[in-house]
Protein backbone atom coordinates (compact mmCIF):
# COMPACT_ATOMS: atom_id res chain seq x y z
CA UNK A 1 0.00 0.00 0.00
CA UNK A 2 2.94 2.35 0.45
CA UNK A 3 3.54 4.71 -2.41
CA UNK A 4 -0.19 4.59 -3.12
CA UNK A 5 -1.00 7.26 -0.56
CA UNK A 6 1.42 9.63 -2.21
CA UNK A 7 -0.25 9.09 -5.53
CA UNK A 8 -3.15 11.51 -5.89
CA UNK A 9 -5.66 9.84 -8.20
CA UNK A 10 -8.03 12.78 -8.28
CA UNK A 11 -5.28 15.12 -9.41
CA UNK A 12 -4.08 12.62 -11.99
CA UNK A 13 -7.55 12.15 -13.41
CA UNK A 14 -7.99 15.89 -13.73
CA UNK A 15 -4.62 16.26 -15.39
CA UNK A 16 -5.43 13.57 -17.89
CA UNK A 17 -8.67 15.33 -18.76
CA UNK A 18 -6.78 18.56 -19.45
CA UNK A 19 -4.12 16.80 -21.47
CA UNK A 20 -6.70 14.93 -23.48
CA UNK A 21 -8.97 17.96 -23.92
CA UNK A 22 -12.06 15.84 -23.34
CA UNK A 23 -15.21 16.29 -21.23
CA UNK A 24 -15.00 13.43 -18.79
CA UNK A 25 -12.31 11.23 -17.31
CA UNK A 26 -12.94 8.61 -14.67
CA UNK A 27 -11.06 5.86 -12.93
CA UNK A 28 -12.87 2.71 -11.84
CA UNK A 29 -11.26 0.43 -9.31
CA UNK A 30 -11.87 -3.24 -8.78
CA UNK A 31 -12.77 -4.01 -5.17
CA UNK A 32 -10.96 -6.82 -3.38
CA UNK A 33 -12.23 -10.35 -3.15
CA UNK A 34 -14.20 -9.74 0.08
CA UNK A 35 -16.30 -7.26 -1.88
CA UNK A 36 -16.84 -9.69 -4.72
CA UNK A 37 -14.62 -7.83 -7.19
CA UNK A 38 -17.23 -5.16 -7.63
CA UNK A 39 -16.21 -2.32 -9.88
CA UNK A 40 -16.91 1.27 -8.89
CA UNK A 41 -16.09 4.58 -10.47
CA UNK A 42 -13.97 6.07 -7.69
CA UNK A 43 -12.42 9.19 -9.21
CA UNK A 44 -13.90 11.43 -11.86
CA UNK A 45 -13.28 14.75 -13.48
CA UNK A 46 -15.76 16.77 -15.54
CA UNK A 47 -18.77 14.82 -14.29
CA UNK A 48 -22.31 16.16 -14.85
CA UNK A 49 -23.75 14.61 -11.70
CA UNK A 50 -22.94 12.27 -8.86
CA UNK A 51 -24.90 9.49 -10.52
CA UNK A 52 -21.70 7.68 -11.50
CA UNK A 53 -21.01 7.03 -7.82
CA UNK A 54 -24.10 4.85 -7.55
CA UNK A 55 -22.95 2.50 -10.28
CA UNK A 56 -21.58 -0.80 -9.06
CA UNK A 57 -20.61 -3.18 -11.82
CA UNK A 58 -19.74 -6.83 -12.01
CA UNK A 59 -17.44 -8.53 -14.44
CA UNK A 60 -18.79 -8.30 -17.95
CA UNK A 61 -21.35 -5.59 -17.13
CA UNK A 62 -21.10 -2.04 -18.39
CA UNK A 63 -18.08 -0.42 -20.00
CA UNK A 64 -15.78 -1.03 -17.02
CA UNK A 65 -17.02 -4.59 -16.57
CA UNK A 66 -16.22 -5.45 -20.17
CA UNK A 67 -12.73 -3.95 -20.04
CA UNK A 68 -12.21 -5.82 -16.76
CA UNK A 69 -13.35 -9.11 -18.20
CA UNK A 70 -11.49 -8.91 -21.49
CA UNK A 71 -8.40 -7.04 -20.27
CA UNK A 72 -8.46 -5.23 -23.61
CA UNK A 73 -8.83 -1.51 -24.26
CA UNK A 74 -11.99 -0.17 -25.86
CA UNK A 75 -12.07 2.54 -28.45
CA UNK A 76 -15.51 3.84 -29.40
CA UNK A 77 -15.46 7.00 -31.51
CA UNK A 78 -19.25 6.99 -31.97
CA UNK A 79 -21.28 5.33 -29.21
CA UNK A 80 -24.50 5.58 -31.24
CA UNK A 81 -23.02 3.44 -33.96
CA UNK A 82 -21.32 1.06 -31.57
CA UNK A 83 -24.33 0.32 -29.40
CA UNK A 84 -27.92 -0.23 -30.34
CA UNK A 85 -30.15 2.38 -28.82
CA UNK A 86 -32.17 -0.21 -26.94
CA UNK A 87 -28.99 -1.63 -25.39
CA UNK A 88 -27.49 1.64 -24.30
CA UNK A 89 -29.07 1.48 -20.83
CA UNK A 90 -26.69 -1.39 -20.06
CA UNK A 91 -23.86 1.14 -20.08
CA UNK A 92 -24.97 3.49 -17.32
CA UNK A 93 -21.83 5.62 -17.34
CA UNK A 94 -22.54 6.63 -20.94
CA UNK A 95 -26.08 7.64 -20.03
CA UNK A 96 -25.21 9.37 -16.76
CA UNK A 97 -22.47 11.42 -18.37
CA UNK A 98 -24.07 11.65 -21.85
CA UNK A 99 -20.93 10.38 -23.54
CA UNK A 100 -20.99 10.11 -27.31
CA UNK A 101 -17.42 8.95 -27.87
CA UNK A 102 -14.97 7.39 -25.48
CA UNK A 103 -11.98 5.16 -24.87
CA UNK A 104 -11.36 2.90 -21.91
CA UNK A 105 -8.16 1.08 -20.99
CA UNK A 106 -7.36 -1.55 -18.39
CA UNK A 107 -4.79 -1.01 -15.63
CA UNK A 108 -2.97 -4.06 -14.34
CA UNK A 109 -1.47 -5.23 -11.07
CA UNK A 110 -0.13 -8.76 -10.62
CA UNK A 111 -1.36 -9.53 -14.12
CA UNK A 112 -4.94 -8.88 -13.16
CA UNK A 113 -7.08 -5.95 -14.19
CA UNK A 114 -7.35 -3.75 -11.12
CA UNK A 115 -8.53 -0.50 -12.62
CA UNK A 116 -10.23 0.93 -15.68
CA UNK A 117 -9.49 4.39 -16.97
CA UNK A 118 -12.12 6.00 -19.14
CA UNK A 119 -11.95 9.21 -21.14
CA UNK A 120 -14.95 10.45 -23.06
CA UNK A 121 -16.59 13.37 -24.83
CA UNK A 122 -20.18 14.50 -25.15
CA UNK A 123 -19.71 14.97 -28.89
CA UNK A 124 -19.34 12.12 -31.31
CA UNK A 125 -16.04 11.42 -33.07
CA UNK A 126 -14.30 13.69 -30.58
CA UNK A 127 -12.30 10.71 -29.31
CA UNK A 128 -9.92 10.33 -32.24
CA UNK A 129 -7.48 7.51 -32.69
CA UNK A 130 -4.65 9.92 -31.84
CA UNK A 131 -6.35 10.75 -28.55
CA UNK A 132 -6.81 7.07 -27.82
CA UNK A 133 -3.06 6.58 -28.35
CA UNK A 134 -2.38 9.63 -26.18
CA UNK A 135 -4.49 8.16 -23.37
CA UNK A 136 -2.51 4.96 -23.52
CA UNK A 137 0.79 6.84 -23.49
CA UNK A 138 -0.29 8.96 -20.48
CA UNK A 139 -0.49 5.91 -18.24
CA UNK A 140 2.49 4.07 -19.76
CA UNK A 141 4.41 2.39 -18.42
CA UNK A 142 2.87 2.89 -14.98
CA UNK A 143 0.02 4.80 -13.39
CA UNK A 144 0.49 4.86 -9.65
CA UNK A 145 0.79 1.23 -8.58
CA UNK A 146 -0.65 0.02 -11.86
CA UNK A 147 0.88 -0.68 -15.21
CA UNK A 148 -0.75 -0.30 -18.55
CA UNK A 149 0.25 -3.55 -20.22
CA UNK A 150 -0.25 -7.08 -19.14
CA UNK A 151 3.17 -8.48 -18.35
CA UNK A 152 3.90 -11.52 -20.38
CA UNK A 153 6.74 -13.69 -19.21
CA UNK A 154 8.99 -11.95 -16.74
Amino acid sequence: MEGQSAFNYQEQVEEIRLAMACDFVALALVQPEERHFQIRWEYASGNLSQRFRRIVLHSGKGVAGIVFKTGKPMYVPDAQKYYKKEDLYNYPILIAEELESFAAIPLFKYNRVKGILLAGCRKKNCMSFEKFELLKSLVAPTFGPYYSEELTGN
Binding site: R51, F52, R54, I55, V56, L57, K61, G62, Y89, P92, I93, I95, A96
Partner: peptide, 8 residues
Protein backbone atom coordinates in the same frame (compact mmCIF):
# COMPACT_ATOMS: atom_id res chain seq x y z
CA UNK B 1 -31.20 -1.22 -10.43
CA UNK B 2 -29.41 1.44 -8.41
CA UNK B 3 -26.11 -0.42 -8.62
CA UNK B 4 -26.42 -1.61 -12.19
CA UNK B 5 -27.90 1.44 -13.80
CA UNK B 6 -27.37 4.23 -11.30
CA UNK B 7 -31.16 4.69 -11.19
CA UNK B 8 -32.49 5.65 -7.78
Amino acid sequence: TEKNYGLL
